[in-house]
Design a protein around this nucleic acid. Structure first.
Lengths: 206, 206
DNA sequence: CGAGTGATTGACTTAGATCAATGACCGTGG
DNA sequence: CCACGGTCATTGATCTAAGTCAATCACTCG
C-alpha cells in the first residue's frame, strides 16, 4: 500500500497541503465536495451525526490512507471529517482528478485498481471478523497473509495487529502463546511461522 | 445497490452467463484472469488456501454482488472461487471491460464510483465491528442508516441484519427488545424509529 | 536515568454465544 | 381447504471465551 501510488504525477503535482489542529474540522456533511484527501500524518475521523446529535464513526483514517474517495462522484459530503489529532493532509481537487481521469484513462484505471484492492482487503477484514474464536481469527489472518513458506512477517506491533483483528491485545498475546505452546506456530521476533499439522512436536495444552 | 448499475450498456451486453453446481469451481488461484463476475443467484466463496491445505474464506458473495473486480488489473487470480450453492453468474470479459474503460471515460468513472461506494460501506462495517457492545453496534447501525426523520426501514430479515452486524440473531432480538423496553427505539414492522432521549416515556430496565 | 510504550501473564467478570423450545406465518401439494 | 414442513421471531437457561483490571519486565529515547 505504497503512498498514493495510484496517482498520476499530474494529479500528485496538484495536491494542496493542509494542516489541521486536533479537533479541527476538515469538512462537514452537506458541504460541496472539493476533492479527496490523503492523510499524511495524524488521524482523521469520518463521522455521521443523526438529528439528535448522536455520533457514529464511519472510519478513522490513519497516515497513508485516503478519505472521501466517493466524494469525487457526488456533490456534497455525506459525513463530517474531524482531526482526531493534529494532522497533515493533502487535498487533490476534484476537478483536477476528474479531468485527468477523463483524458488519461491510465490514471482512471490506476485509481480503479487501487479501489478494487481496497475492496478486496476490506471484504477480507469483514469476513475475518465474522469468526468468533480468537484462535480461528488468528488462523485466518495467518492463512491469508502467509508467504509460500508459511511465514508471516508483521509490519507493525502486536497491538496494532490485535486492533486489526478486532481483539484486545491481551487476547492476542494469549492466543499466540497458546498456539506456540501447541506447536501450531513458531515465533521469531517479528515473524510467525505456521507449522503444518504433521510435523508438530506435540506439546499438548488447551 | 441496484444490480450492476455501474456497467455501461456496452459492457452489459457482453456479459456471458454461466451456471455452477454446488461445489463447482469458478477459477483457481494462479489461473489467468478472464474477467470479473456478477453473481446472479446462489453464493460463491472466495477462498485462499495455504500450503498445508488450510482454507480461509476471503469473501462470500451473494446474489447481486460482483467478485474479482481486482482481477481486471492483474494477470492471475489470487484465490479460488467455489460455488457454495448452485449459482448463476455473469462473466464480463476483461478485454471488453478494459477496452470500454479506455475509450469511454464515463464507464470507467462509473466503475470507480461503484468501488468507492463499496469502500465506504465496508469501512463502516469494519468500524462497526470494532464496537464490542451489541447495543452500541445497533446504535451505530441506526445512526448511520437513519433518515432525517430518525427512521430506518430494514430491507431484509432481522437474521440478515444480525449477520451484517456480526451478532447472533438471538443477541439482536434481545438487544432490540431491551432498547424498545427502554424507550430508545420503537418498532413498527419492518421499520425502527429512534427516539430522542428527551421524549422517552421512561420505562426503566437494567 | 526516568518516562513512555510494548509484551506478557494472572485473576475475575460478563456480555454474548449456544442450546433449546415455542408461536406466528407462509406456501404448497394432496 | 387444510395439514405439514420450513423459516423467522422470540424468549429462557446455561456456559465460556474474551474483555477488563492490574502488575511486571524489557526497551528505547531523550
Amino acid at each position: 500500500m505504497a503512498n498514493a501510488d495510484w496517482l498520476s504525477p499530474k494529479i500528485r503535482a496538484a495536491g494542496i497541503e493542509r494542516t489541521l489542529g486536533r479537533g479541527e474540522t476538515l469538512f462537514r456533511s452537506g458541504q460541496r465536495t472539493v476533492g479527496l484527501y490523503e492523510v499524511l500524518s495524524g488521524t482523521v475521523r469520518l463521522v455521521r451525526v443523526d438529528r439528535t446529535g448522536r455520533e457514529a464513526v464511519l472510519h478513522s483514517a490513519a497516515a497513508g490512507e485516503m478519505i472521501a474517495e466517493a466524494s469525487l462522484f457526488s456533490n456534497a459530503y455525506h459525513c463530517d471529517a474531524v482531526a482526531t489529532t493534529a494532522a497533515r493532509l493533502r487535498l487533490y481537487p476534484k476537478s483536477v482528478v476528474l479531468g485527468e481521469f477523463k483524458r488519461n484513462s491510465e490514471a482512471a484505471q490506476a485509481f480503479a485498481a487501487h479501489l478494487a484492492r481496497q475492496v478486496m482487503g476490506l471484504r477480507t477484514s469483514v469476513e475475518r471478523r465474522n469468526i468468533r474464536s480468537a484462535r480461528d481469527r488468528v488462523r485466518h489472518f495467518l492463512v491469508v497473509n502467509a508467504g509460500a513458506n508459511g511465514m508471516v512477517t508483521l509490519r507493525g506491533t502486536l497491538k496494532e495487529l490485535a486492533a486489526d483483528l478486532g481483539l484486545t491485545h491481551e487476547a492476542l498475546y494469549r492466543t499466540l502463546a497458546r498456539m506456540a505452546k501447541d506447536g501450531e506456530i513458531q515465533r521469531v521476533g517479528r515473524t510467525i511461522r505456521t507449522v503444518p499439522p504433521y510435523d508438530r512436536s506435540h506439546k499438548k495444552s488447551r
